[in-house]
Design a binder for these strands. Structure first.
Lengths: 236, 236
DNA sequence: CAGTGGTCTAGACCACTTT
DNA sequence: AAGTGGTCTAGACCACTGA
């Protein structure tokens, strides 16, 4: 439907198919505009998309090149976004076991973090995530009831994010994450089945809606031998 | 010089100054185009910049709004990019102590990771980074000599990245990072001065040039009680 | 239905690189 | 000097929102 996306898709396909080789020039914008029968601005916008994805880079006066790493990091880099554990480990049996699901009034920290009034209740969720039966992550989540009404244990079993997006029609606006190493607590050891001297990888995050409203604060403690956190920095 | 950047700067300033309030509408693109005496496309491009920075969001048919979190996360979020430790902790005395600086031929892993021939030498650098005299990070770095010729101990004392950018005139193309928790080794304990049962936060990274050439592989082991890794996800 | 932002055009000028 | 990508214009049409 949208022209510049269709052109971006076609060029991306050509890179993937080796029509345009890594580390070499691709046709100039004027030629591509002629080929696709669009204006040059539209071609440029398609190129902006591919540059954003890290597939190409441009040198003014010189031309547009395919990056050396286009095929290696390229296509899946975008899919590696944080969509929960479910999407990341396809081919394995990923399960969520709800250990507790309650509602309470927020303490001062949660109240400030989620920009709530002290009388606004929050869900408090503790979930154990297992892969092929082995415990990987124990996750403590606080979510604003005001933002996310009608959350049920059923939605927890599948994907909370799908519930928010599909059922409530809300858009995400991003997240702020802090990653630590920590000593495992007895609680971690019990649920993750890790040794007393095993550390854990803790990911603390605040997730926002499109308008900036923070709706979730969570801390997930990951078995250090099973999980790492990856970041792709595309130097925008 | 560039119009859309100047307009973006002015609008950003107005958000910062409270002329445009958080969680409320800003003037439509046609009005702004008239005010700044430019075409609407140019205003839109300025808005694209601010949307990318997470300051505003747009709803087709409705208007352009300032995000609730514009002031809180907004301006510094972009500066928080990875520029080494030096920029992150201003006001403290950050020092780099070079523990070893040698050149050798790459092992198989480094050869593959940096896309080298087995006869291409690499720098091997071990540095201890201290803040106000306290050890924070021990960093093992491998850099391609072919990519970064003429690296000296002098450049290590200040900033390797500045040397690459200013002296060699090379552009960065981003990085791929993997963050783990790990048990501290005797080596860590010696240099970081941490206890036997202290974990470390390990950041493993491959840094690329603009054209995709990987020029650095490094593993930095951080004192778990002093350092964490933060990620801002703007949901592009 | 009026107003909003998103897309697209055809053409212009500019900054820059390469020959 | 020729060719590249970046910016900008004035105007058009579209999809969507909200009164």
């Amino acid at each position: 439907m949208i022209k510049y996306e269709m052109i971006a898709n076609k060029i991306r396909q050509r890179i993937q198919d080796g029509v345009y080789l890594a580390d070499s020039l691709i046709p100039d914008q004027v030629s591509l505009a002629k080929e696709f029968k669009v204006s040059r601005m539209t071609v440029k916008k398609a190129m902006d998309v591919l540059a954003f994805e890290g597939l190409i880079f441009r040198k003014r006066g010189s031309g547009t090149y395919v990056k050396k790493t286009a095929l290696k990091n390229g296509l899946n880099a975008n899919l590696m976004e944080y969509e929960g554990l479910t999407q990341q480990l396809s081919g394995h049996e990923v399960k969520s076991q709800v250990i507790s699901f309650t509602v309470e009034f927020p303490d001062d920290f949660i109240k400030e973090t989620l920009m709530l009034d002290k009388h606004d209740p929050v869900y408090k969720i503790i979930r154990l995530r297992t892969v092929d039966g082995d415990p990987y992550i124990i996750e403590h989540t606080f979510m604003s009831v005001k933002c996310i009404p009608g959350l049920s244990e059923e939605a927890l079993d599948t994907s909370v994010y799908q519930y928010i997006h599909n059922e409530l029609g809300l858009q995400f606006g991003g997240a702020y994450r802090k990653i630590h190493a920590a000593k495992s607590s007895e609680y971690d050891q019990e649920y993750l089945g890790c040794a007393v001297d095993d550390p854990v990888l803790e990911v603390e995050q605040v997730v926002h809606l499109e308008d900036g409203t923070p709706f979730e604060y969570s801390r997930s403690r990951n078995r250090y031998d099973k999980r790492s956190y990856t970041v792709v920095d595309l130097q925008k």
